[in-house]
Design a protein around this nucleic acid. Sequence first.
RNA 1: GCGGAUGUGGCGAAAUUGGUAGACGCACUAGACUUAGGAUCUAGCGCCGCGAGGCAUGGGGGUUCGAGUCCCUCCAUCCGCACCA
Length: 980
Amino acid sequence: MAEYNFSEIEKKWQEYWKVNKTFKAEVDTSKPKFYALDMFPYPSGAGLHVGHPLGYIASDIVSRYKRIKGFNVLHPMGFDAFGLPAEQYAIQTGQHPAITTETNINRYKEQLKNIGFSFDWDKEVRTCDPAYYKWSQWIFLQLFGSWYNKDSDKAESIDSLIAIFEKEGNANVHAVCDDDTPAFTAAEWKAFTEKERQTILLNYRLTYLSETTVNWCPALGTVLSNDEVKEGFSERGGHPVERKLMPQWSMRITAYAEKLLQGLNKIDWPEPLKEMQRNWIGKSIGAEMDVQVEGSDKLIKIFTTRIDTVYGLTFMVLAPEHELVSEITTADQKAEVEKYVAEAKNKSERDRMTNVKTVSGAFTGAYAVHPFSGEKLPIWIADYVLAGYGTGAIMAVPGGDQRDYDFAKHFGLQILPVFENTDISEEANPTKEGKIINEGLLYGLTHEEGVKKAIEFLEEKGIGTGKTNYRLRDAIFARQRYWGEPVPIYFKDGLPYPVAIEDLPVVLPEIDKYLPTEDGDPPLGRATDFTYTPKGETESYPLELSTMPGWAGSSWYWYRYMDAHNEEAFVSDEAQSYWKDVDLYIGGSEHATGHLLYSRFWNKFLHDLGLVGENEPFKKLVNQGMIQGRSNFVYRLRYEVHGVATIDLPQIFISKGLVDKITKIENGKVRMDLHNEADQIIVSKTQEIVGKVFPDKGYTSGYEGLKNGIHVDVSHVDNDVLDIEAFKNWRPDLKEAEFILEDGKYICGYEVEKMSKSKYNVVNPDDIIEKYGADTLRMYEMFLGPLEQFKPWNTHGIDGVFKFLRKAWRLFHDADGNFVVSDAAPSPDEQKIIHKTIKKVQEDIEGLALNTSVSAMMIAVNELTALKCNKREVLEKLVLILSPFAPHISEELWEKLGHQGGVSVSNYPTYDESFLVEASHEYPVSINGKVRVKLSFPVDQDVKEIETEVLAHEIVQKWTNGKPPKKVIIVPKRIINVVV
RNA sequence: GCGGAUGUGGCGAAAUUGGUAGACGCACUAGACUUAGGAUCUAGCGCCGCGAGGCAUGGGGGUUCGAGUCCCUCCAUCCGCACCA
């Protein structure tokens, strides 16, 4: 019998798609477009495991579906190829990262191709390719050459800013810029030296060089951006991170804080992810206020969201790093303050975080004047006030803020209640309820009224204003590493200048080893001639030695796919205005505050410059859940034999069930109780084994090491049963291993963990494909559960999906394997089966409920098999709805059905509702002679009229309180609708 | 601490969004056909009960003729942020 030969079929059609360029996506204005994008992978050395393609399969199903729905589909794939692992590997081995990366990419591509994706490989991009990063550099220079004009609320060319400076100075310029930018007139601007001008312009540029506190990771030898640091450790490698002041390239993403926040309301993204971005942006609305230092003209600027509580203000707190600290500290307090500042400075980020609970601070000796009441307020410094947020200083309202309260309690400072009926003897009252009870301007007002009135007062007196703050920080945009895009900047007189556009790309130079120089410069400092000679000059200047961070190349790549080989522009207008934005983007939620935020930022910037049409890049986003590994464990009994070294004995492994029943484990050793059955088995078996090796010493003492199992390669385990022979041959030291079995089997323990080589739980898609075929793999990954959910991989259930495809195949073949389909008209039952399935599958694909659409097709095939249905009309439709999921088998059957050109040139079948509900009866029923009740139910349901009537009678009476309803629609045991 | 999500058989999960809970698949049990079965087919499979029937969607309470679904409350697990004024 000619069975379903998946390997032959899959090879054939993959070749067909390649030769015919079936999935080539070109601009075609006669068709609607659909852009399905996957987050492109970083090609690691380990290759793909079954978890990686999950999202790609989902997007491929949607792509293939949209294609036969008549859309022109762009579904590309590429590689995010710059990054730390390749470079760390290079440091260890001396192997050039480009070579490692190339090898890894080739392996990835090969694995991806086996799965039968409908990628247009002609559009592949690699971020490490100079032809690609030329445009990453180009965009960098656009940012360098732009400033953010708050008046027009968008980015503009820096030339327009210079024009304004020349005409009228910067007094009327409203820009997002460095706060320390001095004011100057047109005359002053003209009088500035080149150096002074460039320094000022840097304060405005959207990418700029400045002295900032950065996350420095000594182990990696580089700075990291906030999203690359998790709890004081580097995200990659888990090395400690310090705060350090150094000159760095940054991106002025803060200019876009509000737009990034507002844009979230327009896009179809998972709510948790949007929430994460909202928190990361951290908008808070409040007020800014200047507080005068007593006996001085110095002002402390503070930010607060609770200006209504200003009468509860009893002291001021500055961050230890605050610039006024040294100026206002009195002679008496100098020593103490300096000591505290020094301590705070030396605290690592990690220490600061772990000591959140401890209250510490120092009094400066100075006082401030309460701007409303004129009271005298002591000025303290404390590290619970952060230099990096707001103004680095706060007004402390211990009655309303728990941190201020704790601080006040600790140092014996005054605590005042703000709102009526509040008890602040134990803790602060942060609520906004009640009326303000402090004598003064705000007496008797509510929270809202108080805020309004206080801000009016501030503005009237010219000492403050309403103000919105964002937690979002500018993003550090440089890494002191080799394997990244060179920053296209050279230095002349110590000032940064852009490399001319026509000289891009600045190609990554060759270096002897991938480590910092002896002087502490980044690795690029090792290059022998890494300089730039501007056109028309003879002198050459040093180029920037930092490279761009990992997210540079990924912040715009979806545009490159539209027009991957364009040498004139990062994307052509034609391609960009046709493909517009990504209709469906699938990837992990771990990129919430990194890639997904930066991409939106760059997109908005490019939009401001008029380079792209859309201001949000990813219309709909879906987070696919990670597929985790299912690790298996064996349990080794360690034991001692009196006077004999442990190492001379064969290893003994105890089956899971017995381990669980073992009496008890004390101090890492097992105490055996011979009345316990499991213990008895273990003891006697162990003695038997030991007796074999040491006939004269046939007893043991002490057993240990059972509690935590040892990872065993999952390929040696089937359904938690260990293949003992395979296990023995795994490593030489296991050759003589002995096993204590239960029911003749060795049962392994298991745990769900991340897939990783060291846990021996990696499942390679190639192995699954070899055994079951790509179509089965694709369908099984979808069948596993909802796309968004985290779930462990379990190869076991795959049989069911494989059986389904084989059953589907058999519908088209007779017992001898001959292709036989009938041209007879389908029966109503057959029609019903196929039409309901078309409906369900289509709705599920649109809603990305791919697991239930697989189930629906399984049901259909079961039902059609039971009816022995081989009607052409039904089977053709079945092939078409199956084709996005299992494209290879579908192409083969489609061809056998006599069609040319493949499934992708066909049309998706439509379903006919009339096949689903054939008819319905409506019975008018009289209740109490008053109410007319209409009962309706499908004909195929067996209904006892009398029961229905009784039920309706009872329900309707209760329901309407005796009031006669106009209309009641009832189906058996269910009331669908009542109109009273 | 703040914010978000999730909780249904032995397991992965469905449930037309308030209407017969557990579809579909795995595992398991029994039977059939087989030289054999890790093949195929048939039947069974939430729990208690011989049965009629009763109890079941993390626990408790509520709304409703009717609740996995809505409301209140508690518990557990996971994720994100974390001294953000």
